[in-house]
Amino acid sequence: MRERVLITGGAGFIGSRLALRLHAQGHAVRVLDNLLPQVHGADPDVTSPLLATAREVAEVHRGSVTSTDDLRTALAGVDVVVHLAAETGTGQSMYEIDRYVETNVGGTAKLLDLLTNEPHGVRRIVVASSRAVYGEGAYRTRTGDLVYPPHRSEQSMAAGVFDVRGEDGEVLTSIPTTEDALLHPSSVYGLTKQMQESLVMTVAASIGVEAVALRYQNVYGPGQSLENPYTGILSIFSTLIRRGEAIDVFEDGEESRDFVYIDDVVEATVRALSRPAAAGRILNVGSGVPTTVNEVVDALLRHFGASVPVSVTGGYRLGDIRHNVADVRRLAAALDFVPAVSFDEGLREFVEWVRTEPIGSASYRRSLDEMAARKLLK
Rank of each mutant, 00 (worst) to 15 (best):
R140H: 06
A334M: 03
H303Y: 07
H184P: 08
D344T: 09
A272Q: 01
V325T: 15
V325K: 08
R302P: 08
M1Q: 12
G15W: 00
G10V: 03
V78P: 12
A132V: 02
P229V: 04
G360I: 00
A76E: 13
L182A: 14
V296Q: 06
A277M: 08
A326G: 14
L114M: 00
I321T: 15
G305Y: 02
T116P: 02
E170P: 15
V260D: 10
R55W: 03
V101Y: 10
A132W: 01
D70P: 09
P309K: 03
A326C: 11
L115R: 00
T291I: 15
K110R: 13
V338E: 11
R242P: 07
E102M: 11
P276M: 06
G15F: 01
D263Q: 11
I236W: 05
L75M: 11
T53Y: 03
P176G: 11
R215F: 06
S187I: 04
A85H: 01
S311W: 06
Y100W: 05
R62K: 15
D70A: 05
E370Q: 12
I321C: 07
G12A: 02
R257L: 15
E179Y: 09
T90G: 07
T90C: 11
L22C: 08
M1S: 14
R275K: 11
S361W: 08
L318H: 13
V133R: 00
L35C: 09
V29S: 09
V341M: 10
T90A: 14
A138N: 01
R131G: 14
G121A: 09
V265R: 06
V249K: 08
L377W: 12
K193N: 04
R55A: 12
M157A: 14
Q38M: 14
V122F: 00
M1D: 14
P149R: 03
S363K: 12
S93I: 04
H323T: 07
D145M: 03
M157I: 06
